[in-house]
Structures are given as structure tokens and as C-alpha cells.
């Protein structure tokens, strides 16, 4: 079997060109492995080889980011590698930034898997950790011996196109993407052990750090209700009988647009809920208790509101991903703009 081809990026120090005095060294390419590349090659056990090493001064890269990246990408392109790896940079700040930046540039330009390694406090982690695989290493080159097996293993998985496990399994920094994997102990045992540590004021690691939610500035109020066009949107899954769009009972992949023109009341047998997360008895009996068409129609007749928008929008907010909900809502909002809607009543179950 042919070996996977790897190109390795390192700085002037690990390239044995020199220390800080040589940090202005421009990118150069050598064939085969250099410095840490020799140790890395040993991890491949014959399955991959470093065909070329690119050495660049940390100062040079950080001061000439765009031109350095462009030059290095071309050097990498010539080799047509299967994987690109940089570093590891440990806690060297400029080296870490260079490793992260060049990995991202190569990934974007050549569409090949990339990875690097560095210490958790290296600014490169903050800057590039969400976009590329960065293996967690110790803070100095003394951690080379423990870093290379992790980098080598992840590199081979990427080369083979295998499924990449969760961050804690593979040893890379979390990219904010939740990935399932199997722990050695069951959840209840992990919970008891975590509690014992928390009680003893010992460090523990939560399996799910709480998110922070963004905010949107409130829109101004409607000035005149009697001319306003009010639209209803619901995540309660109200649909015409038989669920014509087959909106899923959970993890909805779509939403529906339904006409209520001339409809005074959502009556049993004509409307129902597709939502699987709550007892549907009440909503199936009278869908107005989720989408209040009857009341708003009355208020339209009484002149309290200008009109009830002739369409309402419905999806199922049961286990449905936030990203999907955002996309549905953005699409609905476009339609609401076209329909000259003034304000929205959103109902949730």
C-alpha cells in the first residue's frame, strides 16, 4: 500500500536554523523530515511519510502573514500531500499563531485535513481552535515525547478519512461541536465521582460547560394597533389535519406555511398538532389554544387590530436544533416582510 504523504511545518528553532536571532528567516522547503518530524515519522509505523518540511521564522511569518501564507501554500501544493501538520508549538505564542494560521490557510486553499498541537494558553488555541484540530500539549518542548503519539494517531485517522472521536478521546481542543463517544465508566459512576471531588473542593471537569446566549435589541412598539397586520408563528406544531408537510414530531427539519384566510376558528378535525413533546389531546381538540385564530379574528372584526395576517407559520420545537429554528425563523421573517406584517405573536408549547 502506498504511504500517505505528509507535509510538516516547523519554525526556525525546531528547524535547527537558530534561535530568536534567526526569527526573520523566510520560508524554505526541505525534502523529508526535519527535527520533530523524525519523531513524528516513528509514530506513523510505515503508514505515512513526511515528504517535505517547511521551515519559517516565527517573526517572519507573523510580520508577513498574507505573503508568507501564500508562499507556503504553494510549497505545500507542489507536494500534493494527504495531510498537513504544523508544530507542535507548545507555549510559544508567535509559533502557535503561525501554526494555526498556516493550517487554516492550507485547509481553505487545498481542502486537505490539517492539524497542529500547542499548549492550552497559547493564543493560537483561541484564534484557531474552533476551525482546526489542535492537539493539547504541555507548555514546553519537554512535552514533545507525549505530544507526538497523540498527533501521529490523529493524523493517521484524518489521512484514512476515519470518523474523528470526541475531543477528550482524541486529545484535541473542543471545537464547540458536540460529539458522542463512550466513556469507560457509566454516567452515574461519573456523577458520583464528580460530586465527591466537588465536595472535597478538588478540581473536576464538567462534561458540558453552560453556554452563554446572545441578545437582540428589542424592536420599537407598534404605534397604531388598529392598522397593524398581526401574524402568528408557533413552535407548537399546529398543522392542517393529516400533517400534509409531514413535519416531524421531534427534531423538525421544516416548517409549514398555512392559509387562514376566511378561517374564523381552528376546529377539531381540520387542524391538529404534529408536536411529539406534549400531550396532544387539548391541541387536537381545539388548536386555537396554541394558535389563537378565533380571538384574533374577533379582534379584527371589532377593529381592534388592523388585520390578522392571512398565513401563519408553524414548526415543531421538540428537540429541534437551535440552528434549524434560527434558519426557519429567518425564512419566515422574509415572508413576513413581503406580507407587510407589523408585529408577530409567537406561541410556544
Amino acid at each position: 500500500m502506498e504511504k500517505f504523504k505528509v507535509v510538516h511545518y516547523i519554525n526556525q528553532f525546531f528547524g535547527q536554523i537558530g534561535g530568536e536571532e534567526m526569527a526573520t528567516h523566510p520560508p524554505e522547503k526541505r525534502s523529508g523530515p526535519v527535527g520533530p518530524g523524525l519523531g513524528l515519522t516513528a509514530q506513523f509505523k510505515g503508514e505515512a511519510e513526511i515528504v517535505a518540511t517547511i521551515i519559517c521564522g516565527d517573526g517572519y511569518y507573523n510580520e508577513n502573514m498574507d505573503s508568507a501564507a501564500a508562499a507556503i501554500v504553494e510549497m505545500v501544493r507542489e507536494e500534493q500531500p494527504d495531510v498537513f501538520v504544523a508544530g507542535p508549538a507548545f507555549n510559544a505564542g508567535r509559533y502557535g499563531v503561525a501554526c494555526g494560521a498556516i493550517c487554516k490557510a492550507v485547509k481553505d486553499a487545498l481542502q486537505i485535513p490539517v492539524l497542529t498541537g500547542m499548549y492550552e494558553e497559547n493564543p493560537g488555541v483561541d484564534m484557531y481552535g474552533k476551525e482546526i484540530y489542535i492537539v493539547s500539549t504541555r507548555d514546553s518542548a519537554a512535552g514533545m515525547r507525549s505530544a507526538l503519539p497523540v498527533i501521529g494517531k490523529l493524523l493517521l485517522k484524518l489521512a484514512r478519512g476515519e470518523r474523528i472521536g470526541a475531543s477528550v478521546e482524541e486529545g484535541y481542543f473542543s471545537q464547540g461541536i458536540r460529539v458522542n463517544f463512550f466513556e469507560e465508566k457509566r454516567g452515574s459512576t461519573r456523577a458520583v465521582e464528580m460530586l465527591v471531588k466537588k465536595l472535597a473542593d478538588e478540581p473536576f471537569v464538567t462534561e458540558y460547560p453552560m453556554p452563554s446566549f446572545d441578545r437582540v435589541d428589542p424592536m420599537p412598539a407598534i404605534k397604531d394597533l388598529s392598522t397593524a397586520n398581526i401574524a402568528i408563528v408557533t413552535s407548537g406544531g399546529i398543522v392542517p389535519h393529516g400533517n400534509p408537510d409531514r413535519i416531524e414530531s421531534s427534531s423538525a427539519s421544516k416548517y409549514g406555511e398555512y392559509s387562514i384566510e376566511g378561517v374564523a376558528d381552528l376546529v377539531v378535525g381540520e387542524w391538529e398538532t404534529a408536536h411529539g413533546g406534549y400531550d396532544p389531546t387539548a391541541a387536537n381538540h381545539d388548536a386555537d389554544c396554541v394558535v389563537p385564530v378565533d380571538v384574533l379574528r374577533d379582534m379584527e372584526q371589532e377593529g381592534i387590530i388592523g388585520k390578522l395576517n392571512p398565513y401563519f407559520y408553524s414548526t415543531v420545537g421538540n428537540g429541534t436544533a437551535v440552528a434549524s429554528s434560527k434558519q426557519f425563523a429567518a425564512e419566515m421573517a422574509q415572508k413576513l416582510i413581503e406580507q407587510n406584517v407589523s408585529a408577530v405573536i409567537l406561541t410556544s408549547t
Binding site: R215, M219, S325, A330, M332, L346, T347, S348
Partner: peptide
């Protein structure tokens, strides 16, 4: 959803049980 619709320029009244 409330935020996304509001972002598009509509005031939104969110009627929900679990405020």
C-alpha cells in the same frame, strides 16, 4: 425563533408557559 424574527425588524410577543 423570537430573536431571529426580531432581528429581521418585527416586534415579537413570545407567548409561552416556561417564561
Amino acid at each position: 425563533m423570537a430573536k431571529e424574527i426580531e432581528r429581521a425588524g418585527f416586534p415579537v410577543a413570545h407567548i409561552c408557559t416556561v417564561t
